[in-house]
Nucleic acid binder design. Structure first.
Lengths: 262, 262
DNA sequence: CGGTCCATTGATCTGCCTCAATTAACGTGG
DNA sequence: CCACGTTAATTGAGGCAGATCAATGGACCG
């Protein structure tokens, strides 16, 4: 059921695609793939990249170095996410993107993408959907910014769980969470100390298990409740069909070590 | 130099438009205009509006009612801003929009807009630019969320100042800021008490004057410095040309009471 | 004149930060 | 095989920014 190609998988979270559209996506995203080291900057702040970067494998983050000097993460990029789909319109990036793990990155020709958007309206809609969902996630982060640390943390984990789920990177109730507490700290806007303590409290409450980069969520409904999480803002096709309150167990396509090779 | 039509004015912040494009925008945005009371909800959370709302006059806000019950404002909409340009792609709104002042709202036919986007690439780019800038503002709000109250406050005022400036609604160093402290509170994620105290400190420091809904910024550079504000994320055409550190005095088209009739 | 909305102030409390160590895991070179 | 450096997680203690609770004052209005 799940396609091999990550971009196809991601976009089918919006609507089923015609075989022809899928083929276009495969052609587009499977050439020009490069490997990027963990910690290296994929796009610098102020740059104007020529082509469009797609994360094929691994985790990356949008961030800014704030006035006070700290790094502030504004978004996590998972496989299937674009770095800057529409950067062509702007003169320069207003933030940077860094690989948090080793990443496979595909560079798409921006002219080719433009052509496709004009020729395949269904695909154009699907890509627009991706952009809109990104905006929705951002709005949710704004809301999250001023919540209790534990709620914000729980919410973030719920978001990542659902996003990983919709690209088929869940293994039962577990997923690879290759983030250090410092990276979580920069995303949550806390101090490392408090991130650590909050994490421990979530653990003690039995809401999560996190060890060796593997996050398990034994009771998603409970975590969602703790984080005030409602997945409607992710605008998934299956939002209504799925009963989020009772996540099905069992394997979800890719096994947990699907990333470990990256 | 500044066009009468607010949408034209707004979009020319990206690039000059052909007369033909301007005419299209005028035709599109000057019919179907309605008046909305302050405090009334323009679009409900969960709705799927049929046509596209454009704020022609007045202030509005995107907000969510968070899990804890508080209203969280995620964006201020100024004249020339759309409520939901691309909502057609999604099934429903994931947040609501409320008029903060009496507003003039134009409803654009979404089919007509779609047609225009296909036919006038320059216009399509300009509209895409608007959407991208909105995303950039959102990212900046995420960054701002975890700053000292005074810095976040100063930054917000800088943002509003520049945005008002680029649609020609500045009067020298003054602008209409028709927000109650409670609304600022919901945008900054503080308590009303602390918003008030922070505001007072900004006043004492001589960074702003705010009275009767009129905000004056005697020394923009100083306020920008206090807020760690850099306008590059607003991606204005004139970003480089303007010397932000020394805002020119004198009238900027619309007089200060241009809104008072709304 | 009372009601409502908004700004303001005082006092107390707390979630989170900061500073400062300690421990564990891992790799690397001698 | 061990000493050492590095990076990440963890713990303790004290301090502060901002929350909360509770009033008060002013402006506007019917």
């Amino acid at each position: 059921m799940m396609d091999q190609n990550i971009l196809v998988r991601k976009l089918e979270g919006y609507a089923p695609l015609k075989e022809r559209s899928k083929q276009i996506l495969r052609d587009l995203s499977e050439r020009q793939v490069s490997l990027v080291d963990a910690g290296s900057v994929i796009i610098e702040d102020g740059d104007k990249p020529d082509d469009i970067c797609l994360i094929v494998e691994g985790w990356a983050a949008r961030y800014k170095v704030s006035h006070e000097g700290g790094r502030r993460i504004m978004a996590f990029l998972l496989p299937g996410d674009f770095c800057e789909l529409e950067i062509a319109v702007l003169e320069q990036m207003d933030h940077a993107i860094m690989a948090l793990t080793p990443c496979k990155v595909a560079r798409l020709d921006s002219e080719a993408v433009k052509r496709i958007l004009a020729e395949d309206p269904a695909l154009a809609d699907a890509l627009r959907w991706m952009t809109l969902v990104e905006g929705a996630i951002l709005r949710q982060w704004v809301v999250n910014g001023r919540r209790q640390a534990s709620a914000a943390f729980a919410h973030l984990l719920c978001e990542l769980y659902i996003r990983m789920k919709s690209i088929g990177l869940l293994d039962g109730d577990r997923l690879l969470l290759p983030l250090t507490q410092e990276e979580l700290t920069d995303a949550l806007g806390l101090s490392t100390v408090h991130t650590n303590r909050t994490l421990q409290r979530l653990r003690e409450r039995g809401l999560i298990e996190l060890e060796g980069g593997i996050l398990a969520i034994p009771d998603f409904a409970a975590l969602a409740d703790a984080g005030g999480f409602d997945d409607n803002y992710l605008h998934r096709r299956s939002s209504r069909a799925d009963s989020l309150s009772r996540p099905r167990s069992g394997r979800w396509s890719a096994p947990i070590d699907s990333l470990s090779s990256a």
